[in-house]
Design a protein around this nucleic acid. Structure first.
Lengths: 168, 168
DNA sequence: AGGTTCATGTAACTCGTTACATGATTCA
DNA sequence: TGAATCATGTAACGAGTTACATGAACCT
């Protein structure tokens, strides 16, 4: 999965600005994809050069101009090619588990603290995903909702596992 | 968490070759870190130039020479600095969830197939982690074992979640 | 007065992947 | 005979992060 495919997928739903795309990625995609302005804007320019998207400048009053991007026929073809390509294996990068792995080199109190913080962090992620789900759900397909629900349940399971191991 | 810190952490346990380090990453670190020869060998050279590790060439009969790397005092300091730095948030990249999100653009049969394949993949990951755990557990601290167990349980929970949602 | 939201962008840098190159030994 | 294991490495490319730059409107 390339960032280009992700952006095409988002634009395949409807025309949006780079700002909108980043917002979507930071909220409902947060549990399975990562992206920022520094990665999304250049990708949009690249897709425009390749003719996969088109840009329309929207002049606004009291706000900066918007670049509204729309997917082209060629972009749709590219996206469909992605959808039919083999699914790549998941990649997880967890600094938390790396610390835990090396737990013997830290005082026990500190490890306990790290675990508590990770539980708190995940509890907050559940809350955020749930509230984001409420915000977006009207416009979501059943698959998209499923995807959110899997995220919420995954976080909850992780929390349970950590709590179970908390007292050794 | 930088790859340099990860390599220092592995060498902090004992002196090893680049090959050994990659093997460890590909087996017991697989659920929380990703690395390959193309990333680990250059990092080892970089750490050597910085004086964080030293290299000893071991001549073998019937096998290629080995470069045995050991952590230096300066490397230990660096590693301890990492251990005491703030824990970075986890990052997950899941092509599977991306496909599921766009499920409406694929035939239902294909989505079902993708879910089945993901369940199979994760069942295999559980098996692999369990067998790796058996291989390495003699040399593992209780924290390292905990880390493996969390991986196994996380995969199992993911499988349960997917099975639950399988029939919609 | 200060923080947040909306809105876009780039330059420099760091990092990682992919593909290639080599080559003996061991196992099926 | 062919695949896997052991063992190291690099060049070219592609991708992503960080930090910077701008600036009005709106909310507290």
């Amino acid at each position: 999965m390339k960032t280009e495919d992700v952006v095409l997928g988002i634009l395949n739903e409807k025309s949006q600005t780079g700002y909108d795309i980043v917002e979507k990625i930071k909220t409902i995609f947060s549990h399975f994809f990562d992206g920022s302005y520094g990665s999304i804007y250049p990708v949009l320019h690249k897709l425009e050069n390749k003719g996969k998207v088109t840009k329309k400048i929207i002049v606004q009053e009291g706000k900066p101009n918007k670049n509204l991007y729309s997917i082209t026929e060629s972009g749709r073809e590219e996206f469909n090619k992605y959808l039919r390509s083999p699914v790549q294996t998941e990649v997880m990068k967890s600094d938390f588990l790396m610390r835990l792995y090396h737990g013997e080199y830290l005082p026990e109190e500190q490890i306990k603290q790290i675990i508590i913080e990770e539980i708190n962090r995940k509890e907050q992620l559940v809350e955020e995903l749930e509230s984001q789900f409420e915000v977006w759900k009207e416009d979501m397909s059943s698959y998209q909702k499923l995807c959110c629900q899997i995220g919420i349940e995954s976080y909850r399971s992780e929390i349970e596992i950590l709590k179970k191991f908390q007292g050794h």
